[in-house]
């Protein structure tokens, strides 16, 4: 498979109080197109930092982050914004939807960034919210809201979706529905997925598991076969 992302010897240092902390320590990783990568680690392992620098949301101290040969680490903030607009989607633990817009309008917020011709209704149907199209956020459950945020991210047809603890605020049943949605998107649209989690069960849904600790990749495991979300152990 073709490489989508190449992370080459990336380090990230930041100042916390008077001390310098190494959030990432010479990390190298390749992500293939259409792959589902799960980055697993405990709190403070550097997994979210790796997601942030890879997606251009944060800067690196050294190294390279290449997308189809282009090093985005050297991009200006303006260029990074433009890059994210065209290529990347984001899903966070807290859904951060616009509370005064309904489901359709929130997805349209994402769709209006892209140049694709996908019908917003089709995207809403993809995430299984066709009956809730005109509802407002306070009328939806947590899982439903998370699916709206997925639809919003998907609406501009990104090449890569970054998901930071997408099920962190959800119960098992709802969380598994969300994971099924992510897999469905990956299979239908060939969207590369980078999922960050502390839940080892979730790691089984991906093609590869990247284990991290203290800012380093300590293990890389290839899943021979993806496990269906309904079969994964939770917690």
């Amino acid at each position: 498979m073709e490489k989508m992302i190449e992370i080459k010897d990336v380090s990230k240092l930041y100042k916390a109080g008077k001390e310098m902390t190494k959030a990432l320590d010479h990390v190298s990783l390749d992500v293939k197109k259409g792959e589902i990568i799960v980055i697993l680690g405990p709190s403070g392992s550097g997994k979210t930092t790796l997601l942030n620098v890879t997606s251009g949301l944060d800067n690196i101290t050294s190294g390279k982050i290449l997308y189809e040969g282009n090093n985005i680490a050297k991009y200006s903030d303006h260029k990074k914004t433009s890059f994210r607009k065209k290529n990347l989607g984001f899903i966070f633990q807290t859904y951060n939807l616009l509370e005064h817009l309904n489901v359709y309008e929130n997805v349209l917020v994402g769709s209006s960034l892209g140049k694709n011709n996908d019908n917003v209704t089709d995207i809403i149907n993809t995430v299984g919210l066709e009956k809730h199209k005109h509802k407002y956020m306070h009328e939806l459950s947590g899982g439903e809201q998370q699916r709206v945020s997925i639809a919003r991210a998907l609406a501009k047809r990104p090449k890569v979706m970054f998901c930071d603890e997408p099920t962190g605020a959800l119960d098992e049943k709802t969380g598994k529905i969300v994971l099924e949605t992510l897999i469905k998107i990956n299979e239908e649209y060939q969207t590369t997925m980078v999922i960050v989690t502390h839940n080892p069960g979730i790691a089984l849904i991906g093609d590869r598991i990247i284990k991290m600790n203290s800012g380093q990749i300590i293990e890389e495991i290839v899943n021979e076969k993806r496990t269906k979300p309904q079969d994964i152990p939770w917690g």
């Binding site: 303006h78 994210r84 607009k85 990347l88 939807l97 917020v109 994402g110 960034l113 919003r152 501009k156």
Partner: peptide, 15 residues
């Protein structure tokens, strides 16, 4: 109040 939502919008590519 909308700091987080704005953060996501900027992440998605809104300037």
């Amino acid at each position: 109040d909308e700091r987080l939502q704005i953060g996501v919008l900027k992440s998605l590519g809104y300037n």
